[in-house]
Design a protein around this nucleic acid. Structure first.
Length: 605
RNA sequence: GGUUCAGUAGCUCAGUUGGAUAGAGCAACGGCCUUCUAAGCCGUAGGUCGCAGGUUCGAAUCCUGCCUGAAUCACCA
């Protein structure tokens, strides 16, 4: 019956070894142990072998030294399991080598499963992902890029795992900030529009926001030079008064103000759409704060009636969260106007009505941890049973070498500028290498765009989302090494191989089961078989970087393989077929992984 | 001050459920293009895993204390 072992994959082999160990413990030491006590793990690369047993937990049953126990267990296994061809013992670790046949079968079973990302969707949940969440008074910056990439990738990953995922965006389209831009445009804009000036709409409106701040600063310093304190000066500022006046008029529904507001926001949206398109992100449903702040107010009033909230003497409405070791929190101002959290309450309730989600993830920076803690608590207090399903996906800040980004001080890395720079750099590098000489300009620029965006996206997504990250505009983004373009390059090589294979008429239908596979090939198969686990882990941890780092490891392993072995030139057809299949499958997995990050792969570069 | 998070090579980052000699890339130095794409491959060098205790056969990982940094504790969003 031993010949059957050639049909056993490595996964099955691991299970078999587990069972062998349980048997061995009973037979050698007379102890019945639980399978959970058997610690099997992949052997580290530095050591010889494929699977490793950690024997330390078993010592109390064997009563012998780690080395002796491992040796005796190794002996038992090699005699009872012909799929294990050798073993070695280092300290308390028993490294076992799995037969080539098992590794080959492992790959053949992967290869047979042509649908790479076939996940069980029967347990799929309805998941809402809110991300992006821009303000409409200025263009997107690097921080938004991290947000957008994380949100989009998260949606892809959860979706790949069989969930029903909806991407949403809440646009912060109302408030004093947009009024500042509106007022500045009225004062200094001379009736110009983005199309008059050739500017992108969001940059155009952002320009007036900056002009407002400049003029306001000037006004304040003039007032202060007349002897007023900073507080008095801001109180006397005509510009600020004008902006506030505008906000009141907007809330009152003044038609001219609303008209201007619509017009300027429209410009901004046109600009945002271009940036979103360049980033390759999209949304299933967009919410606007101007629609949700009023329902939010009603929710607060309901809570007030139910006695969950309370009113202070000045008429403002509060919630006391002291019992949850938090502070009291304002929900409505004395004049009845909404604050930040008011509209978030409205949005959350509206979204549940719209989607009946099981879970909702808010992709928002970690500076708002407190806010989302409060939001969830309040929703729970209000008795919404779905509140338990909301979760703040909190990501770290993007820091610049000079410190934190401050949009008001112009210390930002503009999203559009950065994207352009990336694509231009990709083009320069590509032209220098000259590999696309036979391509037309349009085809070339498509590829340059893919490469530039891959560099940017990978740079951001490879780091753990929770951590703050450093971005040095000059040095950070690279096209060599652990980068998106490197992975794309590996993929392009594989595609090139496949084209050549096709030209030569090599088609792989079946892989010969007599092939003896070597170390490098085994290493590749080891990585390939982890794909689904990696995606599941990324989904469970809500961490795209798990996939980013996996994709790099895979690409690197393939490059080594590519360098060391002939793939197409092999004289033995069985081996050639196997290597073509291995290459093609590796390409597929690399491509799938990168697509989960929202990174497009070029066939050539 | 309270809360939360972080601290790993000169720099940017990985490091699985606690497991072996802590890994990549960049920067530096030295090799590889007559061979399926050199955006590559190989090698050299680089570490008191913030510090000190504790738990454990075993700690970068878990616990406690301290040091440093970030965010937050708004009638801003």
């Amino acid at each position: 019956m031993y010949y059957l072992c050639s049909l056993i994959t490595v996964i099955e082999m691991e299970k078999l070894v587990e069972k062998n160990i349980v048997d061995a413990m009973a037979e050698l030491y007379g102890h019945d142990i639980d399978v959970a006590d058997v610690q099997i793990q992949p052997t580290r690369k530095e050591f010889e072998g494929d699977i490793t047993l950690v024997v330390f937990p078993l010592l109390r049953y064997s009563g012998k030294s780690p080395e002796d126990t491992a040796g005796e267990l190794g002996n038992y296994i090699i005699n009872s399991n012909p799929g294990i061809i050798s073993y070695n013992v280092i300290k308390g670790f028993l490294n076992m080598k799995v037969s080539h046949a098992a590794w080959l079968d492992e790959f053949i079973s992967l290869w047979a499963d042509r649908a790479v990302s076939r996940f069980d969707s029967s347990q799929g949940k309805t998941i809402l992902i809110e991300y992006s969440s821009p303000n409409t008074n200025k263009p997107l910056h690097l921080g938004h890029i991290r947000n957008n990439l994380l949100g989009f990738s998260l949606a892809r990953i959860l979706s790949a795992c069989g969930h029903r995922v909806y991407k949403t965006n809440i646009v912060n389209d109302r408030g004093i900030h947009i009024c500042k831009s509106m007022l500045a445009w009225q004062l200094f804009g001379e009736g110009k529009t983005p199309s008059d000036t050739g500017m992108k709409g969001d940059h155009f409106v952002g320009k007036y926001y900056v002009e407002f701040e400049k003029a306001y600063k000037k006004e304040i310093s003039e007032l202060m030079s007349e002897g007023l304190s900073a507080g008095e000066a801001s109180g006397r500022s005509e510009l600020m008064a004008g902006a506030r006046q505008m906000l009141r008029k907007w809330e009152a529904g003044d038609s001219d103000t609303v008209e201007l507001w619509k017009r300027m926001n429209g410009w901004v949206y046109e600009g945002f759409d271009l940036t979103y398109e360049a980033l390759g992100v999209d949304f299933d449903r967009i919410y606007y704060e101007s629609d949700t702040y009023k329902p939010g107010r009603e929710i607060v009033m309901e809570g007030l009636e139910k006695g969950i909230f309370y009113r202070k003497e000045d008429g403002s409405v509060w919630v006391n969260l002291a019992s949850d070791s938090l502070d009291e929190k304002l929900l409505l101002r004395a004049d009845g106007t909404a604050v930040y959290i008011t509209q978030d309450l409205g949005t959350a309730v509206q979204r549940y009505k719209d989607f009946k989600f099981d879970r909702q993830y808010y992709v928002v920076g970690n500076e708002q941890n407190y806010h989302f803690q409060v939001l969830k608590l309040i929703l729970e207090k209000l008795g919404y049973e779905w509140a338990g399903g909301i979760h703040h996906f909190s990501y770290g800040m993007v820091n610049l070498p000079e410190g934190k980004m401050k949009s008001r001080e112009g210390k930002v890395v503009d999203a559009d500028d950065l994207i352009d720079t990336m694509i231009i750099t990709a083009r320069e590098m590509s032209d220098e290498l000259g590999k696309l000489h036979d391509y037309g300009d349009e085809e070339k620029s498509k590829i340059h765009r893919k490469i530039g965006m891959a560099a940017l996206k990978y740079f951001i997504l490879k780091v753990d989302p929770r951590k703050n990250m450093m971005f040095n505009p000059r040095e950070s983004i690279d096209f060599n090494g652990r980068t998106g373009p490197f992975i794309q390059y590996t993929y392009a090589r594989i595609r090139s191989l496949m084209r050549l294979a096709e030209e030569k008429g090599y088609t792989v239908e079946d892989i010969d089961s007599d092939v003896i596979i070597n170390e490098k090939e085994t290493e590749l198969v080891k990585l390939l078989r982890q794909y689904k686990d990696v995606v599941s882990e990324a989904a469970a941890l809500l961490n795209p970087s798990v996939i980013a780092n996996y994709a790099y490891d895979l690409a690197r392993e393939f490059n080594q393989f590519y360098h060391d072995y002939t793939i197409l030139g092999e004289k033995v057809p069985e081996l050639r077929n196997f290597r073509i299949a291995l290459s093609e499958y590796t390409g597929k997995i690399i491509c799938s992984s990168m697509n989960l990050l929202g990174i497009e792969m070029p066939d050539r570069m």
